[in-house]
Design a protein around this nucleic acid. Structure first.
Length: 281
RNA sequence: CUGACACGCCCCC
């Protein structure tokens, strides 16, 4: 039984949702083992991960009609399929069903709902959910705030990001790299390279070492702002600071340089990536 | 043994 559940989970994580569902269906027939909540949850999660949200929700329904009681994990796993697509409506309707069926929302299910807003760039919706969870006595954690920051990133709203960073700090939640990445992404979206660089400095000062992704967003910001010098400077700077440029870094740098007409520099970078063994595409 | 967070170009916004 544990073995079969682990197998269902492994199929899901390995990107084989159909196998996961097949195993779930075969459990009773081939092994005489009734699928448990964990079996269903693993299969639901497999479908959500594959972007098949409606089928995931279908399994959730089926679970209820087959005499099992969907739990918090079942609902969050199904919600995740919609959340990943930024489908707030369906995510919300599942959270409603969750409460209606007597399964309370917890920090993870709220986190999933906030991430639906995050992907959709819906800062207001994200903040509303945070208020709601706090008034329900559930404290938002760093993941929840990060999802709200992701909304600021997608919406290109660095002011809102600054506000959320302040707010989480006041609530005793320490921002991490992902948190600052949201703020930098917001600058990138709104074409503000120098503000992005400011955030890089702020986070370093706070003792959080910027990772490659942070520089990538900052370079994209510079590129969009038409500031190829800053982008090129960031590329050198990140290496000095110990961050490793990846394929996305180079494409952001090349985008910035190309836009400024510095084609020789673009070609130089291509050579440099090859020399460093970064795969071009 | 099961659930939530971040990256380019193009497209969308």
């Amino acid at each position: 039984e544990v073995v079969l559940n682990a197998a269902v989970d492994a199929c899901g994580k390995g990107g084989a949702p159909d196998e996961a569902v097949k195993l779930l269906r075969g459990m009773e027939r081939a092994y005489g083992i009734k699928p448990s909540n964990i079996s269903y949850n693993s299969a639901i999660s497999a479908l959500s991960r594959a972007g098949r949200a409606r089928e995931a929700r279908g399994l959730l329904k089926e679970m209820a009609s087959s005499g099992l009681k969907p739990d918090r994990v079942s609902f969050s796993a199904a919600m995740q399929g919609f959340a990943a697509a930024g489908d707030r409506k369906n995510a919300k309707s599942l959270s409603k069903e969750m409460e209606d069926s007597g399964v309370g929302m917890d920090v993870v299910s709220y986190g999933t709902a906030v991430s639906a807003c995050g992907r959709a760039g819906d800062v207001k919706g994200a903040l509303r959910l945070i208020e709601e969870m706090e008034s329900a006595g559930i404290n938002a954690n760093v993941v929840v705030y990060n999802s709200a920051l992701d909304a600021c990133g997608k919406a290109g709203n660095p002011e809102a990001a600054a506000k959320i960073l302040r707010r989480m700090t006041e609530a005793g939640v320490i921002p991490n790299v992902t948190s600052y990445t949201g703020a930098i992404a917001a600058c990138s979206r709104c074409v503000n390279g120098s503000k992005a660089i400011e955030w890089l400095e702020i986070m370093s000062r706070e003792g959080i070492t910027p990772e490659t992704i942070c520089y990538n967003y900052a370079m994209t910001a510079c590129g969009r702002a038409g500031d190829a010098r800053q982008a090129a400077w960031l590329l050198r700077r990140m290496e000095e600071e110990g961050a490793t440029p990846n394929r996305i870094t180079y494409s952001a740098a090349m985008f910035a340089l190309g836009k400024a007409g510095r084609l020789h520099d673009v070609l130089d970078l291509l050579t440099e990536m090859e020399r460093k063994g970064v795969q071009a595409d």
